[in-house]
Nucleic acid binder design. Structure first.
Length: 681
RNA sequence: CGCGGGGUGGAGCAGCCCGGUAGCUCGCGAGGCUCAUAACCUCGAGGCCGCAGGUUCAAAUCCUGUCCCCGCAACCA
């Protein structure tokens, strides 16, 4: 029995899970379930990646703590994963004591190995926001081609540069012009481990050949750069113990979260973490996307090696998701959140479809809507479930035959594929699994066709034959479901129920022993057909969500309005339209304005409502306006306010103004064209 | 000359590593069956495997060149 610990890359706590993420988590989940089906011990660990500037800034904008933000996001992530049938043994967080513990341990090891050195780094600093700016938070004019509004590190023209070279840089956080500041950063001298990395990446199949090749030709053919793994405060993360004011860069602690989360799982389950992470007989497997290859195949093994942890047995790298042949797009509604998908469609559809296209190579995976419908309906409903659907009813009254009948080798042939299927699972070639299983289904459906149980049923002499045919068909169906159970756990559960079994007790070996003499429960639809209309609804909803989000983001980013005003003065209780119409607001012109000698805050205004109607109003706006600037202006006044006798005279209304008070008073003024006397509706 | 992947009947893919009559699913045409979620079964039409060279008795498969498409591009999660 192999002892396997498998991880998926940690989703960043700055966004929700979408169908692109799910390529990875489903691939890992299927692989982990397949390992268990084969009788191996397999623990699936994941966690939220919670640190970094992006989280800090977002929390700030949403006016809450990073901890509150990541807690909400973790709950949402776990809800989405559970909905998709992804079963982790443990789901942790990098913002944990356990992860910090291992960061410190690995850090000490790096120090001890003399791999850390300090260097000065010039970076753009946002004075107003009080933070250094990562490249993605700076926009400006490209120093090469002169295009405006380009990112801090690269331009549409293809040029790459340092943010400090950007012309007219602007911080996207505060909208201010950042300045260049120096800070000390800590670097890992990766080059010192070059020989080790050459060996680890190129030998013993730790990587798919194309990725080993990629690293050899792209990074390892030259001296490796020092890796900048610290960020100066303020930063949401772990402060470096021997370098106060500096924090570990999020990519330092993210993979360490694999170990930290394992420790949490161990503590909760009476396991010893060193049995997994310091044990050469345990296998560590990572699943990642090709975009983070560098971190997981160079930095990460280097850190593990230095701190004497188990090195990964394999890093499984996959490509990206495209939808209908193109990159996911918010505007066309193909950027689909897991939660949106689950509102409309059965997770089994996506699990099966992805599986049917996963080959274990780094290729991108295309989700085609037309394709998923035909694939799911043809394979799952028409081929697989149909086999049970067309025979379970006949077998219901009698149950399965007491002895497994002669079937011309059908069962044996299906059982004989076990090794091939196990191997296909091992290499992530789930597409091969589905093809092999559907072949079994093809022959089985043909068998049912040829045996015509519906005719046997009519002949009282042939009831045994009928039972035998159904016994065969249901056994083949059962074999197929066992083979597919890592991909379709819920279907496996429902099938086990039909056959009066427990899916959890199924092992791959179970396909070799026919099920006989047991009862067959009442068949009800195990899986509905996939309805294209629901896909359309899902796309429409995604589009709506994304539009609303974009719009809000656009508005907020453009104006950068803070929450202070609302906080200082929360919204009033709801009122009716009648309540509102009781207040008669009118446009008025200030025809006279003067100081009131004894008053600190008041100006005395004479308002004209047109046609010779005037009002005397005392307004508390002295701190913000001079009388001479007011004369002639149009304002809004409350015209039916009960007059109030003041020390200085009778006040016959109010002028409307917004603001916190003091110099922050802003009179309301109607747009061009309004006339004194117009009512405000 | 940045890196990686891909170009196979209308669509989506397998085959390529280890050369030997081009395969699967959908779609399309004809027929059958009627147990099943308009499902299933049979037969058929449709491809000179991006293009051009080369190696070989033989190339989708190996080599070279070329065109097109997609993704990624360390310090950015």
């Amino acid at each position: 029995m192999r002892k396997i610990l498998v991880t998926s890359a940690l989703p960043y706590a700055n966004g929700h899970i979408h169908l692109g993420h799910l390529v990875e988590y489903l691939q890992t989940d299927i692989w982990a379930r397949a390992q268990r089906l084969r009788g191996n011990r397999c623990v699936y660990i994941c966690a939220d990646d919670t640190h970094g500037t992006a989280i800090m800034i977002r929390a700030n904008q949403e006016n809450r703590t990073p901890e509150a933000l990541i807690a909400d996001m973790s709950a949402a992530h776990q809800r989405d994963f559970a909905g998709m049938g992804i079963r982790f043994d443990y789901y942790g967080s990098t913002n944990s004591a356990e992860t910090r513990l291992y960061c410190e341990e690995i850090w000490r090891a790096l120090r001890k190995a003399d791999l850390i050195r300090e260097k000065n780094v010039s970076q753009l600093y946002d004075v107003k926001a009080g933070t250094f700016l990562a490249d993605r938070f700076v926009r400006g004019t490209c120093p090469k081609c002169g295009r405006t509004d380009q990112y801090g590190d690269s331009c549409q023209c293809g040029a790459t540069y340092s943010p400090t070279q950007l012309v007219n840089p602007v911080s996207t956080i505060s909208g201010t012009t950042p300045e260049v500041r120096d800070a000390v950063h800590l670097f890992v001298e990766l080059e010192k481990l070059h020989a080790f990395l050459d060996d680890w990446t190129q030998n013993n199949n730790h990587l798919q050949p194309e990725m080993a090749n990629y690293l050899a030709g792209h990074f390892l053919n030259d001296a490796l750069y020092d890796w900048d793994i610290s960020r100066p405060a303020p930063y949401f993360g772990f402060e470096i113990p021997d370098s106060p004011g500096n924090y570990w860069y999020v990519w330092f602690d993210a993979p360490i979260g694999y170990i930290g989360s394992t420790l949490q799982w161990c503590n909760a389950n009476g396991e010893n973490v060193d049995d997994w992470w310091r044990n050469d007989s345990a296998e560590i497997h990572h699943y990642i996307g090709k975009d983070i290859t560098y971190f997981h195949t160079l930095f990460w093994p280097a850190m593990l090696k230095t701190a004497n942890f188990t090195l990964p047995k394999k890093v499984h790298i996959h490509g990206f998701l495209t939808v209908n042949g193109e990159k996911m797009s918010k505007s066309t509604g193909t950027f689909i959140l897991a939660s949106t998908y689950l509102k409309h469609l059965n997770p089994a559809f996506l699990r099966y479809y992805y599986a049917s296209k996963m080959t274990g190579r780094v290729d991108d995976l295309d989700l085609s809507f037309a394709d998923i419908v035909s694939r799911v309906n043809a394979d799952l409903v028409g081929n697989l479930v149909n086999l049970a659907s067309r025979t379970a009813k006949f077998a219901g009254p009698t149950g399965l035959s007491a002895a497994y009948p002669e079937d011309g080798g059908l069962f044996a042939n299906a059982a004989a594929k076990a090794d091939e299927i196990a191997e296909a699972y091992e290499t992530n070639d789930f597409a091969r699994v589905t093809r092999l299983v559907m072949q079994i289904g093809d022959t089985a459906n043909k068998f049912v066709e040829d045996s015509a149980p519906w005719n046997l049923k009519k002949d009282p002499e042939k009831q045994q034959q009928l039972q035998d045919v159904c016994t065969i068909a249901l056994n083949i169906y059962r074999q197929m479901v066992i083979y597919l159970s890592p991909i379709l756990p819920e279907l496996a559960r429902a099938t086990a129920e039909l056959l009066d079994e427990n899916a959890d007790s199924w092992r791959l070996e179970s396909v070799k022993t026919p099920l006989v003499g047991t009862k067959v429960n009442k068949f009800s639809h195990i899986l509905e057909r996939m309805d294209p209309v629901k896909i359309d609804a899902m796309i429409a909803e995604s589009q709506a969500i994304n539009e609303a989000e974009e719009k809000q983001k656009g508005l907020l980013a453009k104006w950068n309005d803070g929450p202070e005003a609302l906080e200082n003065e929360p919204l009033a209780e709801e009122c009716s339209i009648d309540d509102f119409t009781k207040v008669d607001l009118r446009v008025a012109r200030i025809v006279e304005a003067r100081h009131v000698p004894e008053a600190n805050k008041l100006l005395q205004l004479t308002l004209s409502l047109g046609g010779g109607h005037t009002r005397n109003v005392f307004a508390g706006i002295k701190s913000a306006y001079k009388p001479e600037d007011l004369i002639g202006r149009l304002v809004i006044c409350v015209a039916n306010l009960k007059p109030r006798q003041m020390k200085f005279g009778l006040s016959e209304g109010m002028v409307c103004a917004a603001g916190a008070g003091g110099t922050e008073i802003f009179l309301l003024e109607p747009d061009e064209g309004a006339k004194p006397g117009h009512r405000v509706h």
